[in-house]
Simulated assay, not measured.
Amino acid sequence: MSVKVGHLVGRSSYECDIVFRVVRVDGDEVELHGEDMRLVADAPLSDLVILDEQERKKHQKQQKEREESCYQLFRQERKWIREKSEYEVTSGYQDQKSYFEVPGKILHIDGDSLYLKKCTAVYDRLGVPVYGVHISEKEMPEQITSLIEMVRPDIVVITGHDAYLKNKGNDSDLKSYRNTKYFVEAVQRARKVVPYMDHLVIFAGACQSYFPAILKAGANFASSPKRVNIHALDPVYIAAKVSLTPIMERVGMWDVLKHTLTGDKGLGGMETEGMMRRGVPVDESDNESDSIEK
């Protein structure tokens, strides 16, 4: 079977350690995007192994189990935070006061349309408001300003695909990375719109991105400290954690990282204020207050 766009493949030279999706075939060269990891790679046709139906199903089952485990952990902590909030609002359960919650709004900009669809589905499950936009990494710096002004988000996620190219130079040179320079420029432009880190929380980066440069540009959170691959959903759990944390509390880094599938090798950042606001009283005619998963 010949390799075609959309096929799931592995690279024999890497013992098929990562499942890729074929996005472009140009003669004997193929451009690959990680199916679950935010990695972009090039490979010769001769190095590719097409996954059969059984292998695809096995991979999908394993990934679904990992993702569901992460989601359940996040949901358990969310339940604990809600119980804590209820205790505080009701003065230790002495008053019968009802309240509503307004999570922080997320603008999620993604260079991969399939990843964006997957991410927005998780935001929906978590009860987090999101405005998703698919834009190629190269166009992100040009589009970020107008999107922030239009959406007026509390949190911005700037992600897609990236890769560290060892043959292009040393690891502190932006030219050594496929798309880090676009993430850096997008963050810099976002900070011109909203300079303060606790007024607009930013996550930026993808697999193997140059972590120090993205943080220096003004991001609260970024990838990838150890130049490793990150999972497609890692940015979601960081952004959702900030969105669902009350504004009177700070989001500690370890609190964030324990919900991700990659951990501190792939993700890092700085202490940040939560973006969720609580209010009273509840308007019984407004069903939106019931939309947040309990």
Rank of each mutant, 00 (worst) to 15 (best):
D162E: 08
D162W: 01
D162P: 03
D162Y: 02
A163K: 07
Y164F: 15
L165D: 02
L165P: 00
K166Y: 12
K166I: 11
N167T: 12
K168T: 04
K168L: 10
K168C: 07
G169E: 08
G169N: 11
N170I: 05
D171F: 12
D171R: 15
S172I: 05
S172N: 15
D173P: 01
D173V: 01
L174N: 12
Y177F: 15
R178S: 10
R178W: 11
N179K: 04
N179D: 08
Y182N: 06
F183Y: 13
V184E: 09
A186L: 03
V187L: 13
V187T: 12
V187D: 14
V187P: 07
Q188R: 15
R189D: 10
V194L: 07
V194T: 06
Y196F: 11
M197H: 07
H199N: 15
L200M: 10
V201M: 08
F203P: 00
A204M: 04
Q208I: 00
S209C: 09
Y210T: 00
F211H: 08
F211S: 01
A213Q: 15
A213G: 15
I214S: 04
K216M: 12
A217S: 13
A217C: 11
A219F: 08
A219Q: 05
N220E: 04
N220Q: 03
F221T: 02
F221V: 08
A222G: 12
A222D: 14
P225Y: 04
R227S: 04
R227H: 11
V228P: 00
V228S: 10
N229Q: 13
N229E: 13
I230P: 00
H231I: 03
L233T: 05
L233E: 12
V236R: 02
V236K: 09
